[in-house]
Amino acid sequence: MDRNDSFRAFVAGHQQSLMRTAYLLTGDAHQAEDLLQSVLLKVLGRWSRLSRVEHPEAYARKALLNQHISWRRRRVKTELPSAAPPERPYSTEDSTVARLVMRQALMRLPPRQRAVIVLRYYEDRTERETAELLNCSVGTVKSQAHYALARLRELAPELAPKLADLREAHG
């Protein structure tokens, strides 16, 4: 198997999970595709070394997180937060609405807090794994998760019971 074949096999095996993470980080399918594409280009450039390591997807995932945080730092803010409530009331029983509300609230978190929430609660990673992927301490992961969950409760109080369930399930 030559270099290109092994890289194609890597992409085929991990593209969906990397795309899901990119989407959860960006909240937009097109931005997620752009993010993943730029990261896969970086991975391809280092593939001769990465193909020999045990978990090249860990490098790709970390590159995805770092690239997203880097892009967010450079992005010009075009949206202004609003204190006005939604036009119509809705029930959090509707899982589709709850997912949309959660996604909108996630998009209002700072990049590092969003990355912690995505890794810990969506990808079900341990605090240690999350810390390693974000290149920070376990204490930082814990504090960022604490502040992010508090902010999510503030942004979407109707989701507080679901957020409490997440916290309890992940200790």
Rank of each mutant, 00 (worst) to 15 (best):
residue 1 M to A: 13
residue 3 R to A: 07
residue 7 F to M: 09
residue 11 V to K: 09
residue 12 A to F: 06
residue 14 H to Q: 11
residue 16 Q to E: 15
residue 16 Q to M: 07
residue 17 S to V: 12
residue 19 M to F: 15
residue 20 R to P: 00
residue 20 R to L: 14
residue 22 A to K: 05
residue 23 Y to D: 03
residue 25 L to F: 04
residue 25 L to C: 04
residue 27 G to M: 00
residue 27 G to S: 04
residue 27 G to I: 01
residue 30 H to P: 00
residue 32 A to W: 09
residue 33 E to V: 06
residue 35 L to P: 07
residue 36 L to S: 05
residue 38 S to P: 00
residue 45 G to A: 11
residue 46 R to S: 14
residue 47 W to P: 07
residue 49 R to M: 06
residue 55 H to F: 12
residue 55 H to I: 06
residue 56 P to V: 01
residue 57 E to S: 13
residue 60 A to N: 04
residue 60 A to F: 12
residue 61 R to C: 03
residue 64 L to V: 07
residue 64 L to Q: 12
residue 66 N to D: 11
residue 66 N to W: 08
residue 67 Q to G: 02
residue 67 Q to K: 12
residue 67 Q to H: 10
residue 67 Q to R: 15
residue 68 H to L: 01
residue 68 H to S: 05
residue 70 S to W: 06
residue 77 K to F: 03
residue 77 K to Y: 05
residue 78 T to I: 10
residue 78 T to H: 10
residue 78 T to G: 05
residue 81 P to I: 10
residue 83 A to P: 03
residue 85 P to R: 14
residue 87 E to S: 12
residue 88 R to T: 13
residue 88 R to K: 14
residue 89 P to F: 11
residue 89 P to K: 11
residue 89 P to A: 13
residue 90 Y to W: 14
residue 92 T to E: 11
residue 93 E to G: 14
residue 93 E to D: 15
residue 94 D to N: 15
residue 94 D to P: 05
residue 94 D to H: 12
residue 96 T to Q: 13
residue 97 V to H: 08
residue 97 V to W: 14
residue 98 A to G: 04
residue 98 A to K: 07
residue 98 A to H: 11
residue 100 L to H: 13
residue 101 V to K: 00
residue 104 Q to N: 09
residue 104 Q to M: 01
residue 109 L to F: 01
residue 111 P to S: 10
residue 111 P to C: 02
residue 113 Q to M: 08
residue 116 V to R: 04
residue 118 V to I: 11
residue 120 R to C: 09
residue 121 Y to L: 09
residue 123 E to S: 11
residue 125 R to Q: 11
residue 125 R to K: 13
residue 130 T to P: 08
residue 132 E to S: 10
residue 132 E to C: 02
residue 137 S to H: 01
residue 139 G to F: 03
residue 142 K to V: 02
residue 142 K to P: 01
residue 145 A to T: 04
residue 145 A to R: 11
residue 146 H to C: 05
residue 147 Y to I: 00
residue 147 Y to P: 00
residue 152 L to Q: 01
residue 154 E to L: 04
residue 157 P to R: 11
residue 162 K to C: 06
residue 162 K to L: 13
residue 166 L to M: 15
residue 166 L to Q: 08
residue 168 E to D: 13
residue 168 E to H: 04
residue 169 A to Q: 08
residue 171 G to T: 08
